[in-house]
Amino acid sequence: MVVHFKFSALKQGRPYEYVVRFALGGLATVVAGLVADGAGPEAGGLMLAFPAIFCASATLIEKHERERKEKNGLRGQRRGKAAAALDAAGAGWGSLGLACFALFIWWQGRALQPALCLAAASLVWFAVAVLMWRLRRELHSPPTLCRDL
């Protein structure tokens, strides 16, 4: 399947869902700063890979998928969990991209200009994450329940 944008997916979201994610993202960034200020950059760095909005995102994915099925008169509970699990699996593979982002920052943080360093590290993250996604697809086909998600 070709990667594409489905803009109509935004209509499923409700305003409060965006507010919750904004607040959780802001809170996670503040906590990361507090930990770094209080316990040093060694501890603060850990927080940069904290699954800050994962709870909210997975819950919303489960809810949207369940509602979509129930609208068609089907029981969507299992389908909702499968969609959230697929998202979690993607995050698991994507975490290698995040580790490579961090490795690049560790390697080049002292040498490069800040904006260039962050932009290059982001490119590294994206390239590795896409590579992991393709590798995962090559290694195994998804279970029937998830195939057309």
Binding site: F5, A9, G33, A58, L86, L98, P114, L118, M132, L149
Partner: peptide, 26 residues
């Protein structure tokens, strides 16, 4: 949210979003 398939969108669950904001300020 907008990306499909969902397995690809899941990669954004491990995006360096908090890291970009924090490291930029740091």
């Amino acid at each position: 949210d907008m990306l499909r398939p969902k397995s690809f969108a899941g990669l954004f669950g491990a995006a360096p979003s908090v890291a970009l904001a924090t490291l930029g300020l740091a």
